[in-house]
Design a protein around this nucleic acid. Structure first.
Lengths: 203, 203, 203, 203
DNA sequence: AATGAATGAGGGTTCATTCAT
DNA sequence: TATGAATGAACCCTCATTCAT
């Protein structure tokens, strides 16, 4: 902790000397990883990410000792935004529509993050923290929306929130960074939602 | 053990036996690959497959110069069986039920083939022939079933057969060789089918 | 926490305090290194030592630019204590017993310093200063004890003091921090001493 | 197993087509490793060994999947020769002298194999097989010689064969490939042997 | 003087693919 | 034709060491 007991009438900038650089590097890494995950999947080599971020491999490992740390950093923020979007939707729309809208928002997010679905199902223990994050954050969010929609009678089917999230993620699996196949994903998710509303169960 | 120890005074056979051996090796490789894809995914090392088949790696490459060739060989047979199952079902059941039953059969097949979905969407050009096989064989089959079901009014939604097949494959993505998550896949496919039957489109 | 918040109107002190801090850090580093060398050997990473000492790596390198500097600092103190123990022993016991007791004290010291022997013989030029320290301090000490014991007739063999010290150090090579194999080392050193007393030379 | 059912009136040479190459590589690797272990210690990088042997790293790993496999290959032969030397010595000399001669032979062997002692005490599990080999082969050999010498009264002290072997190995620790310090090792081992013959235990 | 972030060489290991036999 | 040995690129990860703050 390099002291900083000085004048401090300064607004903010003067603080954290080296720290700022470090943060910038971490950000650059997340950014590079985000782009590369989208371009080439989550399995892109660490060195490639480092180079793209303009730092050495060592720096990558300093900031993200575990590969899952980087994955998390890449997805967490948007995942949080996704969670946060639920309440406003629930307040503004009837349960059924709130559900639809939220799922579509989630769909677009996952579709934009190529490799997310793959990481979730890879079985590689490195990605477990990410899966756990889903369980603890996204699943309860969807569960709430589903419960409300059931109560209101907007949906007839009962479905497990975790399963449903996973299914949507899977349906986004083939979406390319250029957005190709994105329409397909949304159409199929729409079918899933329609199935939820329908009175009859599966055949 | 491709033995070939005789001086074989026969006229033609001298060639045939060898061919037979080659065929046997190819079969052994397909069988080994089938088992290993299910056990460990499509990414299992070539050497492992060769060892399991009881042949050298060189032999594997001779028969399947491209990895996708082996993949195709592995799936083709069952894919064909799947296609062949459509006609009997269409003859025995009303269009809607035939569709449901066929999709469920396809679901179980894909779920059993760990890695199939991954291969289809990997983006690796090596797997394109496999995707092409889907387009030329499975898609028309499903298209037929879908058309019949629409005509009979069993399903209300219109859907692209290729997209639907891909969606089902994706939903099987997380299924493990031990069958774990298999229930999930079937439930989600059921939802998809229910969506097909429902009168309203997506929200 | 190297504070230095004064405008230092004082004449000299302004320098001293800093020195004191520096000294404290150096001491902390030596202490940390001592503990870690014993726990994990001399090859423990620099960063680990720095962390244990509660300072940054940079500080470690400032005080001990060469790894051997730290090694030396770690062992020097105890080496000095070892040297200092010779005189009292020589005064209190007959030459032969003084020799035995001193060697055993040295043995226990080396055995407790895992990695010392390794460092001495590593061949890495970085450790030469340490070897030099042995030559200039310990060797003469033992030489004195040996000479006295020969004169008194307590030992029959002639032996080079430096060689003998090295041999004892080597015999402690396998001793673990938990003391395992320590008995072995002492038994073998005992044999060496017995060999010294025996009338006949080697076979 | 490439058949080899042919004429075979040949002496030996024609056999093992590729196998010969493979064997040559394995030999080259052992030779390179032997040299490099002596020059730079057992910790030389695998890649360096491979280059020196004129093969790719992959080849090294093919022949010696575990580092300990290579170590073993390097030392085993001479270790065996050492063991084999015991019987003739025991037959040709009185127990005490046989012991001395065998130990000196062993000393010269270990001294010539720089890094052997280090490997034995490294604690690295990779070297355990080597240590085990010592226990099962060399230790019993020495135990026999020691027992005979005790019975004949040639030695007075009792000593654990394993400990003694370890001690001798340790004493060879500092010997350089150029033979420097070799005299020292032999002198110290001589002292150890003298200690064995002496009537009194350690002080 | 202290800090700790950054660097990047370096070592281990795997595996797709080629090719001599 | 089958074999499996050889190759070497590619990855992962660790650490000694430097240097801006």
């Amino acid at each position: 902790m390099p002291a900083n007991t000085s004048s401090l009438s300064t607004v903010e900038p003067a603080t954290r000397p080296r720290r700022a650089d470090a943060r910038q590097n971490a950000d650059a890494l997340v950014e590079a990883a985000t782009a590369l995950f989208a371009e080439a999947g989550v399995d892109v080599p660490a060195r490639v990410i480092a180079v793209r971020a303009g730092v050495g491999v060592g720096t990558l490992y300093r900031h993200f000792p575990l590969r899952s740390d980087l994955i998390s950093a890449v997805f967490r923020r948007e995942l949080d935004a996704c969670v946060a979007a639920a309440a406003p939707l629930a307040a503004a729309y009837p349960p059924g529509e709130a559900l639809d809208r939220w799922i579509m928002r989630y769909t677009r997010f996952v579709a934009a993050k190529r490799g997310l679905a793959g990481a979730l199902h890879s079985g590689d223990p490195a990605y477990e923290p990410l899966a756990a994050y889903f369980s603890t954050h996204l699943t309860p969010t969807l569960a709430g929306l589903l419960a409300a929609a059931r109560e209101s009678g907007d949906i007839a089917q009962d479905v497990d929130a975790g399963e449903f999230l996973g299914a949507v993620a899977d349906l986004c699996h083939g979406v390319r960074p250029d957005g190709a196949a994105s329409g397909r994903a949304e159409r199929m998710v729409g079918l899933l939602l329609a199935g939820l509303r329908s009175a009859e169960g599966d055949g």
